[in-house]
Amino acid sequence: MIEFSLLAALLAGLLGGVHCVGMCGGIVAAFSFRADGTHPPFRMHLAYNLGRVSSYVLFGALAGALGATFKLAGVMPVQLLLYVLAQVVMILLGLYLAGFNQWVRVFERAGGAVWRVVRPLFQKLLPVKSLPQAVLAGMAWGWLPCGLVYSVLVSALAAGSATSGAALMLAFGLGTLPNLLGMGLFARQIQPFMQRLWVRRAAGLMVAGFGVWGLLMLAYSTFANA
């Protein structure tokens, strides 16, 4: 099922752009203009996002390693529970993106304490003047308490190994690139489109569909092996 999980994570990142506009819009705006009002070159935006995705991969590796402890201990019911939990979280995430609930904000509030520690370090890196500084700023950006990121991390926890968890979060991070790079380069043109109700509903329901399909795959596998 790892191929399905990677695809789901990739598309969750891509379709989650409706959430990224609100969550990361201010940070992207800070990155999109220099002190003199000019736009930074494209390679700077790539560096920001390289740092951000690197943080996601680290989170995924740590979550996957934690999940692997259950695998090594042979705790099969817990592994199964983690998989089911990951699919349920994906469904709830999709409903959140579609505007039908606000449950993801629980994750965001929980991560707020960490961000309050990281934010002063992040602010010291502004304004960004070099590529290494941009990568560091992007890594700090990755610690933003984003419910979308934390939701996908549940799937990384269920991945069963540090490598699989890192790969899953890498897939998610790559999925977010078109939206966040696009926001950095064409923020004024993209934001109105991403905030349209039908766009939010379509993206959210597709993400929820991944969770439903994951549960159906589990049910079919269980039935077939019975």
Rank of each mutant, 00 (worst) to 15 (best):
L6M: 08
A8Y: 12
L11P: 12
A12G: 15
G13P: 10
L14C: 08
L14A: 15
V18D: 09
C20L: 15
G22C: 07
G22Q: 04
C24Y: 08
G25V: 08
G25E: 13
G26T: 15
I27G: 03
V28D: 06
R34I: 03
A35H: 09
A35D: 11
G37V: 04
F42A: 14
R43M: 03
L46R: 02
N49Y: 04
L50R: 02
G51E: 01
S54E: 01
S55L: 02
G64A: 09
A65V: 02
G67F: 02
A68D: 09
A68K: 11
T69E: 15
L72C: 04
G74C: 06
V75K: 00
M76G: 07
P77K: 01
Q79T: 13
L80W: 04
L82R: 01
L82V: 04
L82M: 14
L85Y: 03
A86K: 10
A86N: 08
V88N: 01
V89A: 10
I91F: 04
L92K: 06
L92P: 05
F100D: 15
Q102Y: 02
W103V: 12
V106M: 08
F107I: 11
F107E: 10
F107C: 08
G111T: 07
V114E: 00
V114S: 10
L126F: 05
V128E: 00
P132Q: 04
A134V: 15
A134M: 13
G138W: 00
M139C: 11
A140C: 15
W143G: 00
W143A: 00
L148S: 11
V152Q: 04
V154M: 13
S155L: 07
G160S: 13
L168W: 09
L170Q: 09
A171E: 14
F172Q: 13
F172L: 12
G173F: 03
G173T: 13
N179S: 14
N179K: 00
L180N: 14
G182S: 10
G184P: 09
G184C: 06
F186T: 11
A187N: 11
R188V: 05
F193R: 02
M194T: 10
R196E: 14
V199H: 12
A203N: 09
L205E: 10
L205C: 09
L205H: 06
M206H: 07
F210Y: 03
V212A: 07
L216K: 14
Y220G: 05
T222A: 14
F223Y: 07
F223P: 01
A226N: 05
